[in-house]
Lab assay of single mutants.
Amino acid sequence: EINATPKGWSCHWDRDHRRYFYVNEQSGESQWEFPDGEEEEEES
């Protein structure tokens, strides 16, 4: 699962919740759901 993350994302293990979470390396935002690989940036 770690190697399957889309480009620009990293996968980390949360010991407290015993599950993986994903970090967007560009924005620093994290989420529980597996990233779909589409950038959802809304910068103007």
Score class of each variant (00 low, 15 high):
residue 5 T to Q: 05
residue 22 Y to W: 13
residue 32 W to I: 13
residue 16 D to W: 07
residue 37 G to A: 12
residue 36 D to L: 08
residue 9 W to P: 03
residue 21 F to W: 06
residue 39 E to L: 14
residue 2 I to K: 00
residue 9 W to V: 02
residue 15 R to N: 11
residue 9 W to Y: 03
residue 16 D to Q: 10
residue 31 Q to L: 05
residue 41 E to W: 08
residue 24 N to V: 00
residue 14 D to K: 00
residue 33 E to C: 05
residue 25 E to C: 05
residue 5 T to G: 05
residue 3 N to G: 10
residue 38 E to L: 11
residue 30 S to L: 12
residue 40 E to N: 11
residue 43 E to R: 11
residue 42 E to L: 10
residue 9 W to T: 03
residue 39 E to H: 13
residue 27 S to E: 04
residue 4 A to K: 12
residue 9 W to G: 04
residue 32 W to G: 06
residue 14 D to I: 01
residue 13 W to V: 02
residue 27 S to L: 01
residue 7 K to D: 09
residue 27 S to I: 00
residue 30 S to M: 14
residue 26 Q to K: 15
residue 36 D to H: 10
residue 9 W to A: 02
residue 8 G to T: 00
residue 24 N to E: 05
residue 4 A to W: 12
residue 35 P to V: 02
residue 36 D to E: 09
residue 14 D to L: 00
residue 2 I to D: 12
residue 17 H to L: 13
residue 38 E to H: 08
residue 31 Q to V: 09
residue 40 E to P: 12
residue 16 D to M: 08
residue 37 G to N: 02
residue 39 E to P: 14
residue 19 R to Y: 00
residue 1 E to W: 11
residue 28 G to R: 04
residue 8 G to K: 04
residue 36 D to I: 11
residue 19 R to A: 10
residue 8 G to E: 04
residue 27 S to M: 02
residue 15 R to P: 09
residue 33 E to K: 07
residue 38 E to G: 11
residue 29 E to L: 09
residue 18 R to W: 02
residue 21 F to C: 14
residue 24 N to S: 06
residue 33 E to R: 07
residue 34 F to Q: 13
residue 10 S to P: 00
residue 41 E to F: 10
residue 33 E to I: 06
residue 12 H to C: 06
residue 2 I to A: 03
residue 36 D to G: 14
residue 42 E to I: 04
residue 10 S to Y: 03
residue 24 N to R: 05
residue 23 V to F: 05
residue 43 E to D: 12
residue 35 P to K: 03
residue 14 D to E: 01
residue 20 Y to R: 07
residue 19 R to Q: 10
residue 24 N to Y: 00
residue 16 D to A: 07
residue 43 E to G: 13
residue 29 E to Q: 12
residue 39 E to R: 11
residue 44 S to M: 03
residue 33 E to N: 13
residue 27 S to W: 00
residue 31 Q to C: 09
residue 34 F to R: 14
residue 7 K to H: 15
residue 34 F to V: 11
residue 3 N to T: 05
residue 28 G to F: 00
residue 15 R to V: 10
residue 26 Q to M: 07
residue 35 P to G: 02
residue 20 Y to W: 14
residue 34 F to M: 11
residue 18 R to T: 05
residue 42 E to P: 13
residue 11 C to R: 06
residue 20 Y to M: 08
residue 38 E to T: 12
residue 37 G to M: 07
residue 24 N to L: 00
residue 38 E to W: 06
residue 21 F to E: 09
residue 17 H to E: 15
residue 19 R to T: 02
residue 37 G to L: 09
residue 19 R to D: 02
residue 30 S to P: 08
residue 13 W to P: 04
residue 30 S to I: 14
residue 14 D to Y: 00
residue 34 F to H: 12
residue 14 D to H: 06
residue 9 W to N: 00
residue 16 D to P: 00
residue 33 E to M: 05
residue 34 F to P: 14
residue 15 R to C: 08
residue 33 E to G: 09
residue 15 R to F: 08
residue 25 E to D: 15
residue 36 D to F: 07
residue 35 P to L: 01
residue 37 G to V: 12
residue 37 G to K: 07
residue 39 E to D: 09
residue 35 P to C: 01
residue 31 Q to R: 10
residue 24 N to M: 00
residue 33 E to H: 04
residue 14 D to A: 03
residue 36 D to N: 07
residue 23 V to S: 05
residue 10 S to F: 04
residue 40 E to D: 09
residue 24 N to I: 00
residue 15 R to L: 09
residue 43 E to A: 14
residue 34 F to G: 05
residue 21 F to H: 05
residue 30 S to H: 05
residue 3 N to W: 15
residue 8 G to N: 05
residue 2 I to V: 08
residue 22 Y to E: 03
residue 26 Q to G: 08
residue 5 T to K: 15
residue 27 S to T: 13
residue 13 W to Y: 08
residue 21 F to P: 06
residue 36 D to W: 07
residue 32 W to V: 10
residue 27 S to F: 00
residue 24 N to K: 07
residue 2 I to R: 12
residue 20 Y to S: 05
residue 23 V to G: 02
residue 29 E to S: 12
residue 10 S to H: 03
residue 26 Q to N: 08
residue 16 D to H: 09
residue 26 Q to P: 00
residue 3 N to Y: 11
residue 9 W to M: 02
residue 23 V to A: 05
residue 42 E to H: 12
residue 17 H to A: 14
residue 8 G to L: 01
residue 23 V to D: 03
residue 2 I to P: 10
residue 31 Q to M: 04
residue 9 W to E: 01
residue 13 W to E: 04
residue 15 R to K: 15
residue 28 G to D: 01
residue 44 S to H: 12
residue 30 S to E: 11
residue 42 E to M: 14
residue 27 S to Q: 02
residue 17 H to Q: 15
residue 20 Y to A: 06
residue 43 E to N: 10
residue 31 Q to W: 02
residue 36 D to K: 10
residue 2 I to Y: 12
residue 33 E to A: 11
residue 31 Q to G: 04
residue 35 P to T: 01
residue 18 R to V: 04
residue 14 D to T: 01
residue 40 E to R: 12
residue 38 E to R: 12
residue 17 H to W: 03
residue 8 G to V: 01
residue 29 E to M: 11
residue 44 S to F: 02
residue 23 V to L: 12
residue 5 T to S: 01
residue 16 D to L: 04
residue 23 V to C: 01
residue 3 N to P: 13
residue 20 Y to E: 03
residue 26 Q to A: 13
residue 28 G to H: 02
residue 16 D to E: 11
residue 17 H to V: 08
residue 35 P to A: 04
residue 43 E to Q: 04
residue 3 N to S: 11
residue 35 P to F: 00
residue 21 F to L: 11
residue 34 F to L: 13
residue 8 G to M: 02
residue 36 D to T: 09
residue 12 H to G: 05
residue 44 S to Q: 15
residue 21 F to V: 15
residue 44 S to A: 08
residue 33 E to S: 08
residue 14 D to M: 01
residue 42 E to Q: 11
residue 27 S to V: 00
residue 13 W to K: 03
